[in-house]
Design a protein around this nucleic acid. Sequence first.
DNA 1: TACTATTGTTGCATAGTGTAACAATAATAA
DNA 2: TTATTATTGTTACACTATGCAACAATAGTA
Lengths: 243, 243
Amino acid sequence: MNKDQHTSEGKEVDWTGFLPGIAIDCVMVGYNEKQLKVLILEYKETGFFALPGGFIRRNENLDVAAQRVLQKRTGLEGIQLNQFHTFGSLNRYAPEPMRKIMKKNGLQPAEDHFLLQRFVSTAYYALVNFEQAEPIADFLSDSCRWYDINQLPKLLWDHRDIIQKALESLRKNIDDAAVGLTLLDEEYTMRELRTLYETILDKEINRSSFHRKMVNSGRLERVGKKSTGKAHRSPYLYKFVSN
Amino acid sequence: MNKDQHTSEGKEVDWTGFLPGIAIDCVMVGYNEKQLKVLILEYKETGFFALPGGFIRRNENLDVAAQRVLQKRTGLEGIQLNQFHTFGSLNRYAPEPMRKIMKKNGLQPAEDHFLLQRFVSTAYYALVNFEQAEPIADFLSDSCRWYDINQLPKLLWDHRDIIQKALESLRKNIDDAAVGLTLLDEEYTMRELRTLYETILDKEINRSSFHRKMVNSGRLERVGKKSTGKAHRSPYLYKFVSN
DNA sequence: TACTATTGTTGCATAGTGTAACAATAATAA
DNA sequence: TTATTATTGTTACACTATGCAACAATAGTA
């Protein structure tokens, strides 16, 4: 058999249980203090950073595998995952960092170890509530943390490109994605929702147009007013309609 | 080594030269006589039909592999390929048809033969000129033919779903895809272009709105008139502007 | 020369959106 | 109590895009 000792997970990993050659990478997007965040793993003692990812079990759907990866890293279930691209460039095959990571974890991988192969990677993005998620490192990493999308550390392989493409995809789907539903608190002001849009799209949005569009979309419901404590009219609170 | 005899291609196939577990499927879309066409392979003596596909060489980019598949089946180079989804459902793993296909080709595949594994498949669609393409079967097939997208034979695995998703993707991108550029002759009337759009979108399009939109897009150029021989005003001919 | 069918074009209604202005209002200052 | 201030809610206007309908142009036919 082809097993590694991974005491940090308390069990051995049987790499033969996964499909070879194909991996999954997840861009988990959060939002806090007017900034977009992405979950990033830091590998032990190497200064290497990368997206959370995983592999597909031999009797597991691709989409289910992605759900599993997300659940492992955030503790959340039932999050909508969006497959946006599959990355298969040759220049993403660079086993040296992974070999170093494994050595730092006390492993002595053979040259043809599962993790040192070339992988094609199908990438998903997911909108994750910053408050509810609990970043959890995997057995090769010592941290899984939120990073500001504009202040990412240098990432391994093509993971910077993957995040960029995820962001483009999110921007394209922003109106369908119900971004406010996941990224904001249950109730929010129009200003907060607009700021979220502006942050994602990285451009200013006209105030009254946005207001009209959101109200007319029929997906928002007024649920009260918010006291800002400031010297001006207090804004309404909205939430997504539940149909 | 792990080689099969394939005299129809005049050489052996060394399956170890490909990445395992991941395949490519191509939806090549053509247009003829007001109907959308798709290139479909028929496997020898089995009555099995499937999309043209292939695998990724160990030192080959994913996108390049897709180009190679397309080139092999159509003889065309430089066609734009659009990756639209990666299919990884478990229910697409059904090796029995492939085993039968191989046996009909005089092969006696081992249980764990490369082609009998589970594959995740990254799918591309491409717009292909019906006149210029020369459908070419591969070594396991005895034909590669255009089929009307509304009269497809029963396809193996999930290939019907793949075509459906390709069509949805094409519809979403129809305005960017410059469909007329590839699917029509170099010069065409507004009526022909509109009929193409209507065929792809499967709905009627308002005549004058379409006319306006296309003219205002700045991507069309009037290049003359066409004699229809009919008793009415003759339409202008257009072509895509070359910038 | 009138007729017919189709194309090219234009006017009108409606919807979406950018811009600016006005109205409402909650706290603060006078 | 009243004026001030800042921000939100709303509305008017302009411009664009698009569906719809009507009119004009025209190439062949009767």
